[in-house]
Amino acid sequence: MKPRILLAIFAVPLALIIAAVPENTTHTFKLTPSQLLEEANSGVQYYSPDEIADMIIKEDPSLQLIDVRNADEFEKFNLPGAMNIPLADILSEDWQAYLDQDVKINIFYSNGTLKSDNAWMITRQLGYENNYVLLGGLNYWVETIMDPAVPGNTSPNEEFAKYDFRKGAGMALGGAAASVGQSTSSSKPPVPIIRSKPKKKRVQGGC
């Protein structure tokens, strides 16, 4: 049999099959479920309230706080410099440039960590980098920064140092009473300019 006929016997039916079946438009996810579980359990996505308070006070330009609660809750209270991306809108095209970038450190926060963890998981599965979660959410933030508990008399010195820092930070950031009704950022912060490069790399070849 001629090689041409042999090739046709294989190639033509395969081409007919591929022409007949619908295209596969599903994209394989960035992480497998077990990898995601491992990351979520290890807690690599968390920034502690102390770290965030420190960054806010030092006006760290790389910090971008993102409030994933709905707009009403955001209006009532938000952290200084935060922008509002409600969890329901997180896949909207408008926000993609904020979430998929490699300039800023995005910190998601909500009242607890449920919504912010959801936001982190979604962006993680989309393959976006530099997205993190405020540990314990706003509840823990109020507990630690705005209204820190006085350590017991027998506590080690580090506890007192931490308390002093938290007290100072709480005062600098408005404290528990002053925080209500605070709306520091009504306008959108500027979009980070440098966007992460699409992961399309290949060594080129040819004849």
Partner: peptide
């Protein structure tokens, strides 16, 4: 898929 079929046809 259709493009592939056309291309295989062209090759043959």
């Amino acid at each position: 898929g259709i493009m592939a079929l056309l291309f295989v046809g062209m090759a043959m």
